[in-house]
Amino acid sequence: MHIYANPLKFLSIARPLTPWLALGGLLLAILGGYAGLELTPPDYLQGETVRILYVHVPAAWLGMGGWLALAIAGIVQLVWRHPLAGIAARAIALPGMVFCALCLVTGSIWGRPTWGTWWEWDGRMTSMLVLLFLYLGFIAIANAGEERGSVSKVAAIYAIVGAINLPIINRSVVWWNSLHQGPSITLSGSTIDSAILWPLWLTLGGFSLLFGAIVLMRMRAIIADIRSEARLKRLAAR
């Protein structure tokens, strides 16, 4: 059973790390949420609806970051045959999809009062919706495979190919005329005033830590599943 050597080592790190990530993430998200609702001024044009930013931006970041992690896991699985890669991919897909959906929903709620529409087929919204469908496809392919604690080669390749959508989402507002505004936060600075911006870093960090905690918990659950099944098989063979 040498294949479990790595997951065991992984568990000894993941077990103590999970509560730290979860509590730290919860604390930052609550602080950021409170600051975003109570301490920041409204926007000069959007008024109070600007506050949805503190959920929308972290959700977009994690929806896209989740797929990047899926693609990296796919490469690690195909090239290095690492046993944790497939487990990580299974664990990441669902929370990634949830954050992607959260991004679309919060964007829609913000779009109605700001733009005057719930949904438009512009480059940014369409490519983000494609990402949601990619997640659905990945989960379907991963569940269709025979592998229990991993994902099939097809799923890993699918994750790598699907990553091409990430630069398209990122550049969609630059390449094409779009209803969605251009990037506010770039390497050269931010066009969001610092009085409005600062709680965003708290929610970004908080949601990211929570995402990490959820992924670790799901990975541990998958590993526990595999191990209990292997134990049952050994008992049955006796």
Partner: peptide, 17 residues
């Protein structure tokens, strides 16, 4: 039909002027 396009600048009301 007319939609408003928001730009990438966010600021408090007193800075909006």
């Amino acid at each position: 039909r007319i939609l408003a396009k928001h730009d990438e600048r966010y600021m408090p009301p007193q800075l909006g002027t």
